[in-house]
Amino acid sequence: MKNITIETITNGDIEQCRDLCNELMAFQKSKAFIAPEKFDLMTFDTRMKKSYESSMASQVVVIKDDGFPVGYVFSTIDVIDSSKNGFPEWAPKVENGKSFYPDWVELPQKIGCLNNLYLRDEYRALKFGSKLVEMSMEWLESFSDVNLIFIYISNGNDAALSFYLNRGFTFSHDVFGGFIKAVYKLKE
Rank of each mutant, 00 (worst) to 15 (best):
Y72V: 01
V73L: 02
F74G: 07
I77L: 11
I77H: 08
D78G: 10
D78T: 09
V79F: 09
V79H: 15
V79R: 09
V79P: 13
I80H: 12
S82R: 14
S82I: 12
S83G: 08
F87N: 15
E89H: 12
E89P: 08
A91K: 03
P92A: 08
P92K: 06
N96C: 14
K98F: 12
K98E: 11
S99R: 09
S99G: 15
S99E: 12
F100P: 00
Y101A: 11
Y101I: 09
Y101L: 11
D103N: 14
D103G: 12
V105Y: 05
E106A: 14
L107S: 07
Q109W: 09
I111L: 12
G112D: 03
C113R: 11
N116Y: 13
N116E: 14
Y118E: 02
Y118G: 00
L119E: 00
E122F: 09
R124N: 05
L126D: 07
G129P: 01
L132Q: 00
L132K: 02
V133E: 04
M135Y: 10
S136K: 03
E138H: 10
W139H: 08
W139G: 08
L140V: 07
L140G: 00
F143M: 07
D145N: 12
V146D: 07
V146H: 00
N147R: 15
F150C: 10
Y152I: 09
I153Y: 02
I153N: 01
S154E: 11
N155R: 06
G156F: 04
G156L: 01
N157A: 08
N157K: 08
D158H: 15
A160P: 00
A160C: 04
F163H: 01
F163L: 04
F163W: 00
Y164W: 10
F169Y: 12
F169N: 01
T170H: 08
F171H: 11
S172E: 04
H173T: 06
